[in-house]
């Protein structure tokens, strides 16, 4: 059963149509990378999937939930769908541990002790066990982003969405975050990730999607897509983007 089904969605901001009929299927356990120019609608598509942006027409189903603008149903969906943002968005007034245990305790009613255990587990997974009691502002950007990933993992999601999670990081810090994501992929997590890291998309993602002007312009197995792009737009993008 597919984990994510996007069926012909259209999304407008005022008069500007940002998604012009996007369809995409992500199988369970698959890793799909989304690449494309700035403004091509990548973030918007990702945000539609977990209901942060409403869309005008089309249909999205993720982890067995249909995306509708109904708060209760959206919350049920979000318990199964993790989202990691470019700017980490940790809660600055809470420690790392509190950031991670907050939602399991509040929304899933996990008992304190179990929530803490879970938090220590996911922190170990991202290699930050010793930072449990630290405040976000004392961490580097890369560490904060790994905590943000751990915070999503603690929800035990079925699908994870990543929106350019390394774009705000200094180059020397992107590696540690990418390693965490690669391990997640190997562990069988279903992942949909927007990225500017072409090498990462090529080597880790099963499928890569190229978005252009609000449409899925081209998609296919990553290796194939990068070695033999079919459209001049993708070819241009790849030759300009590969550093």
């Amino acid at each position: 059963m597919p984990a994510v089904v996007i069926d012909d969605i259209h999304k407008r901001f005022g008069a500007i149509e940002v998604l012009k009929g996007v369809s995409l299927t992500v199988e369970s356990g698959q890793v799909v990378a989304v690449i494309g120019r700035s403004g091509s609608g990548k973030s918007t598509m990702l945000r539609c999937i977990n209901g942060l942006e409403p869309f005008q027409s089309g249909r999205i189903e993720v982890a067995g939930h249909e995306v509708v603008q109904n708060q209760k149903r959206l919350r049920a969906l979000r318990k199964d769908v993790g989202m990691v943002f470019q700017s980490y968005n940790l809660f600055p007034h809470l420690t790392v541990g509190q950031n991670i245990t907050l939602s399991p305790r509040v929304t899933q009613k996990v008992p304190e002790k179990e929530a803490v255990e879970r938090a220590r587990e996911v922190l170990a997974q991202v290699g930050l066990s010793e930072k449990y009691d630290a405040y976000p502002e004392t961490l580097s950007g890369g560490q904060q982003q790994r905590v943000a990933i751990a915070r999503s993992l603690a929800m035990q999601p079925k699908v994870m969405l990543f929106d350019e999670v390394t774009s705000a990081l200094d180059p020397e810090l992107t590696g540690e975050v990418l390693i965490v994501m690669e391990k997640l992929a190997q562990g069988g997590m279903t992942m949909l990730l927007v990225t500017h890291e072409m090498n990462f998309a090529r080597s880790v993602a099963d499928v890569t999607v190229f978005m252009h002007q609000g449409k899925i312009w081209e998609m296919g197995p990553s290796e194939e897509l990068f070695t033999s792009p079919k459209t001049p737009e993708l070819a241009n993008f790849i030759s300009a983007g590969v550093k």
Binding site: N50, L52, F91, S152
Partner: peptide, 16 residues
């Protein structure tokens, strides 16, 4: 605004 989005993505209700 991102604090709202991050906490919404973690399935918190508006009250929470």
């Amino acid at each position: 605004k991102q604090q709202w989005e991050a906490s919404a993505s973690l399935a918190l209700t508006r009250f929470e």
